[in-house]
Simulated assay, not measured.
Amino acid sequence: MTRTHRLFQLMQTLRRLTPPITAQSLAHEMDVSLRTIYRDIDELRGLGAVIDGEAGFGFTLIEDASLPPLGFEDDELEALVLGLRDVSVIADPALAKAATSALAKIQARVPPKQAHRLKHAVLDARRYWRPDPPRIDVGILRQAAWDELSVHFAYQDAKGDQTERTVKPLGIVYMENTNVLLAWCHLRQDFRVFRLDRMDDLRVTDQSFRPHRVSLLRDHLARIRAEVDQVAKDRAHCD
Rank of each mutant, 00 (worst) to 15 (best):
G83M: 15
L84M: 13
L84C: 08
V89A: 09
V89W: 10
I90E: 08
A91G: 03
A94N: 04
L95A: 02
A98T: 03
T100V: 14
L103G: 00
A104I: 14
I106N: 01
V110C: 07
P112E: 05
A115Q: 01
H116A: 14
H116W: 12
L118V: 02
H120V: 03
R126M: 14
R126T: 06
R127V: 11
W129D: 15
R130D: 05
P131I: 04
P134R: 00
V138P: 00
G139V: 01
R142C: 07
Q143P: 05
A154D: 02
Y155V: 02
D157R: 02
D157N: 14
A158L: 14
K159C: 11
Q162D: 14
T163F: 15
T166C: 09
T166I: 14
T166K: 07
K168G: 00
P169N: 04
L170N: 00
Y174C: 07
L187Y: 14
R192M: 15
R192Y: 11
V193A: 07
V193E: 06
D197I: 03
D200P: 00
R203S: 05
R203V: 07
V204M: 13
S208W: 07
H212W: 10
H212Y: 09
S215C: 08
S215G: 08
S215Q: 13
S215F: 10
L216A: 11
L217A: 01
L217Q: 00
D219V: 03
H220W: 13
H220E: 12
R223S: 06
I224M: 15
R225V: 09
V228M: 14
